[in-house]
């Protein structure tokens, strides 16, 4: 029950986004993938869910080679994964309950009564009790993110993939989301990969942090390791010093 990214390369036209990403997320672990905007963090996440296929390399989830799976097998695997989108990606023509019901209807043996119960339980977990009949447009940014998380956990996945769960949120709502991510791990025992560029969140929620730079993972370690990193690229990113990042990239031969 782990996620393995093995030497992933991906280009869109002439633009090479990923240049050999390798990373393992072990069972029950929460790993944050940090990096600059446009570094390819979301592209990496989409490879895990099979939304993109790598040009080279592979992704192994639950022992299955994702890029070579048939559509049927991929759909079975996807029901083991919850995907929390950056802007929630809630279906705006549906109520929150209908949004949550979408994934549940794909599960075998769920009666309408079971679905209703699961929707209520999932909304309770993210503290959105009573929001069943609201539409996404009626929710604030933080509530939408929580509804997106509720939709992702509704079908009790083994893996949770978070794409920038706290971007654009105020500090208090960010803390609420961070706590929810930690609670998902404690309560549901999920294996999680979190894409973020918010180091404060990454330190709080992660067992390990990986830094993506110029399409490669340049450092992986515990939050304490990252804080004490000797890499100028990592320190420059963490401390918000672009000159230090450039200097480190040149020294380590990481420039594009």
């Amino acid at each position: 029950m782990s996620i393995e990214l093995i030497d992933i390369h991906k280009a869109f036209g002439p633009k090479r986004i990923l240049r050999g990403v390798s990373l393992t997320v072990d069972e029950g672990e929460t790993v944050s993938l940090v990096g600059f905007s446009g570094a390819g963090k979301s592209v990496t996440l989409k490879h895990i869910a099979g939304l993109l296929k790598p040009d080279r390399g592979t992704v192994v989830v639950d022992g299955l080679d994702v890029p070579t799976l048939s559509r049927k097998d991929l759909y079975v695997l996807r029901l083991q994964m919850g995907y929390v989108f950056q802007f929630a990606a809630l279906f705006d023509s549906m109520t929150i309950a209908e949004n949550l019901a979408m994934g549940l209807r794909k599960l075998e043996g769920m009666s309408e009564h079971d679905i209703r119960d699961r929707i209520k339980e999932s909304l309770d977990r993210v503290e959105l009790e009573g929001f069943e009949n609201r539409y996404p447009a009626e929710l604030s940014g933080g509530q939408r993110k929580r509804a997106g998380l509720a939709r992702a956990i509704a079908y009790r996945p083994k893996y949770l993939l978070y794409d920038e769960p706290t971007s654009g949120l105020d500090p208090v709502t960010t803390t609420v989301i961070d706590r929810l991510i930690m609670r998902m791990k404690e309560d549901l025992g999920v294996t999680s990969l979190v894409i973020t560029h918010d180091m404060g969140s990454a330190y709080k929620i992660s067992d390990r942090i990986a830094m993506l730079y110029e399409g490669r993972v340049v450092e992986v370690g515990t939050p304490a390791d990252i804080q004490a990193s000797g890499s100028k690229v990592v320190r420059g990113f963490v401390e918000g010093k672009p000159e230090m990042v450039e200097e480190g990239a040149e020294e380590q031969g990481l420039s594009a």
Binding site: A49, G50, L51, R78
Partner: peptide, 10 residues
């Protein structure tokens, strides 16, 4: 990303 969301829910 609603189309991607559909895909992720099989």
């Amino acid at each position: 990303e609603q189309i991607d969301a559909l895909e992720t829910m099989a």
